[in-house]
Amino acid sequence: MVGIKKLEEKEINLKISKKLQKLLEKEGYQVIMTRSEDGGLYDADSRNKKVQDMQKRCELIREKKPLLTVSIHQNSYPDEAVCGPQVFYFTHSAEGGKLAKCIQDAMNSQLDVSRPRVEKANSTYYLLKRSEGILNIVECGFLSNTKEAGLLETDEYQDKVAEAVRDGILTYLGDAES
């Protein structure tokens, strides 16, 4: 997706993901990235690159069996006024819902969100319904909103987003251990 000021979602996703990886590794966690460079998980001659990319992500999750999975994204909407981070989890995953609440709460409180959202169940997103284990899709903000797009392109705000997601994950893991 390309947003306001020609911002590319894939670039911002990768930057925030790498920042989150470093933060979690500092906490002692091993992080497995589905990608660490610009490029998808598909064959160059694939007829449907997006589907093959999603299938390979699900295969990687099945193979590695991570404690949890967080997929970083940026949102868009035709109404430019729509803004704020939104965390999605699979409708039938109680643990996914708990993780989503922890991440959503951290993002709402740490990113000065004007209209805080709540975590949202979803049963149609490919990764949510086809992945094993606990998985959240974290929409960090709207690239279709001028103010948020301006924030999301800065290193400082990307750091804040990564820190909020880390804090949500750590809260969940702390709650899960007790």
Score class of each variant (00 low, 15 high):
Tyr77Glu: 06
Val82His: 07
Asn145Ile: 00
Cys83Gly: 02
Leu135Tyr: 05
Ile134Phe: 02
Gly133Cys: 07
Met107His: 11
Gly141Met: 15
Gly150Leu: 11
Thr154Glu: 14
Ile72Gly: 09
Lys120Leu: 09
His92Met: 02
Gly97Met: 02
Leu99Phe: 12
Ile103Ser: 13
Tyr125Thr: 05
Leu99Ser: 06
Lys101Thr: 15
Lys98Glu: 14
Gly97Trp: 05
Leu135Phe: 03
Cys102Lys: 04
Phe90Arg: 12
Glu95Ala: 10
Lys101Cys: 10
Leu111Ile: 04
Gly96Tyr: 01
Glu163Pro: 00
Glu95His: 04
Cys140Tyr: 14
Thr69Trp: 03
Lys129Trp: 05
Glu163Thr: 09
Ala121Ile: 06
Gln74Trp: 06
Val118Gly: 00
Tyr125Lys: 06
Tyr157Ser: 05
Ala94Arg: 12
Arg130Lys: 14
Thr69Glu: 14
Asp105Leu: 03
Val161Leu: 10
Ile134Asp: 07
Glu132Tyr: 02
Cys83Leu: 14
Phe90Gly: 00
Thr154Trp: 13
Glu63Ala: 09
His73Thr: 14
Glu80Gly: 01
Asn145Met: 06
Ala164Thr: 09
Glu80Ala: 11
Thr91Trp: 08
Glu80Tyr: 10
Arg130Leu: 00
Leu68Ala: 14
Thr124Leu: 10
Leu60Trp: 04
Tyr126Val: 06
Ser131Gln: 01
Phe88Gln: 04
Glu59Asp: 15
Ala81Phe: 04
Asn122Ser: 14
Val138Asn: 13
Thr91Val: 02
Gly141Val: 14
Ser114Gln: 14
Val113Trp: 02
Leu152Cys: 10
Ala106Pro: 03
Leu143Val: 11
Thr154Cys: 06
Leu152Pro: 01
Val87Met: 05
Val161Met: 09
Pro85Ile: 09
Lys160Phe: 04
Thr154Asp: 14
Leu111Met: 12
Asn145Gly: 07
Gly96Cys: 02
Cys102Leu: 03
Arg166Met: 15
Gln74Lys: 08
Arg62Phe: 01
Val87Ser: 07
Ile72Asn: 15
Cys102Asn: 13
Lys147His: 05
Ala94Phe: 04
Gly150Lys: 06
Glu156Leu: 06
Val165Pro: 13
Glu156Cys: 00
Val138Arg: 10
Leu60Phe: 04
Asn75Gly: 05
Asp155His: 01
Ser144Ala: 12
